[in-house]
């Protein structure tokens, strides 16, 4: 009797569940799902003035393999260049960032050698992440300006280390290194805090046991910290990779004058440039978006797979 009463009650409340989650799904459908479908649709249509012409897979063909005319080959080399730039900028930024944040995370969580003022350091190291990326671009543009008016150049000239100003922004590799360093500067604090949360999840008695058994610092790090940290490490890796695919603000704004540096044109910048013009090239930017989407989807699958694996060691430890 009671049981049936309860059942009827839960059925009558179910409608509130739908009402409560409805706004999310309606708005999501309008601002994300339809635009996604629309992006796929647009990737099969033409560019500029001929935006209404169905062209099939031509945009993909031009982007990936080029075509018979010069315009198609130009767009192909531009797209390939942008994908290459994305990869270069992301790898460089990730290596610097992960080494630094891993080191700091291990140091900050070390029970034997305590560093004073850890809280203060954490606050300062996360600060660059909170600052507007376009302002960061402006900041470093003023510091590393091409001319002798750039702060670093004027400093080097005053010290008589150089005679002619170095074109930090215009040279291919110095501009790339600069973007890598800016990105690392902005993100290492964030990554450090993520890794730190993973390390604090490790049972301190494991470290004590290792110390009693005579394990050295490096040994403890590679045999204990790293294996337990693996899931969050992979998580940081994949999210940073997806973030790297979207890298836009810094590469787009880090230039003097009106044109964007070709050495800094990332995939996201390529997409933006193609739709951000008087006669938008929706076809190319949509096709490039779909390609990025497929790459992101593949990466998402990988993180999902690792995530389901990653729960295993934690559960095992709890059972013990």
């Amino acid at each position: 009797m009671q049981a049936t009463g309860k059942k009827r009650k839960s059925v009558s409340y179910a409608k509130y569940g739908y009402i409560f989650i409805a706004p999310f799904f309606i708005v999501y459908a309008f601002f994300m799902v339809y635009p996604l479908i629309n992006t796929f649709r647009l990737s099969f249509f033409g560019n500029g003035a001929s935006a209404d012409v169905f062209v099939g897979l031509q945009n993909y063909q031009y982007l990936l393999f080029g075509g018979s005319d010069r315009a198609a080959n130009a767009i192909q080399s531009q797209f390939m260049n942008s994908m290459g730039n994305t990869l270069i900028l992301w790898v460089g930024n990730f290596v610097v960032q992960i080494v630094l944040s891993l080191l700091l995370a291990v140091w900050f969580s070390d029970v034997r050698i305590k560093i004073k003022g850890t809280g203060f350091f954490k606050v300062i190291m996360y600060l660059p992440n909170i600052i507007t990326a376009s302002s960061v671009a402006g900041m470093f543009l003023l510091l590393f300006g091409n001319t002798k008016y750039g702060a670093i150049n004027s400093l080097l000239i005053n010290w008589e280390a150089i005679i002619e100003p170095i074109k930090f922004i215009n040279n291919v590799w110095s501009s790339r290194v600069l973007v890598m360093l800016i990105q690392s500067w902005m993100w290492f604090g964030n990554t450090m805090l993520l890794l730190l949360s993973g390390i604090f999840g490790i049972d301190p008695s494991i470290y004590e046991a290792a110390e009693i058994d005579g394990s050295s610092g490096a040994n403890t790090f590679f045999r204990i910290t790293m294996p337990i940290l693996k899931p969050i490490f992979i998580y940081v890796f994949i999210t940073s990779m997806i973030g790297g695919l979207q890298m836009f603000d810094i590469p787009y704004l880090l230039h003097e004058g009106r044109t964007i540096r070709p050495s800094l044109q990332t995939g996201a910048v390529f997409i933006y440039q193609n739709f951000h013009q008087a006669n938008p090239n929706y076809g190319y930017s949509a096709a490039a978006s779909v390609i990025l989407f497929i790459i992101t989807g593949a990466l998402g699958m990988i993180i999902y797979k690792f995530n389901t694996d990653s729960a295993a060691p934690v559960k095992k430890r709890k059972k013990k």
């Binding site: 839960s10 409340y13 179910a14 409608k15 509130y16 569940g17 739908y18 409560f20 989650i21 999310f24 799904f25 999501y28 994300m32 339809y34 635009p35 996604l36 479908i37 629309n38 992006t39 796929f40 649709r41 647009l42 999210t239 997806i242 695919l245 979207q246 836009f248 996201a268 997409i271 933006y272 739709f275 929706y282 930017s285 949509a286 978006s289 779909v290 990025l292 989407f293 992101t296 990466l299 998402g300 993180i303």
Partner: peptide, 27 residues
């Protein structure tokens, strides 16, 4: 609340978390 689509809705929200805005921006 308990309702039929509760589980699929939750899974859906978790699955779409990673979709970057740039990918849908053209559409």
């Amino acid at each position: 609340y308990d309702f039929k689509l509760k589980k699929p809705a939750t899974t859906f929200i978790l699955a779409i978390m990673m979709i970057p805005t740039q990918v849908v921006s053209t559409g």
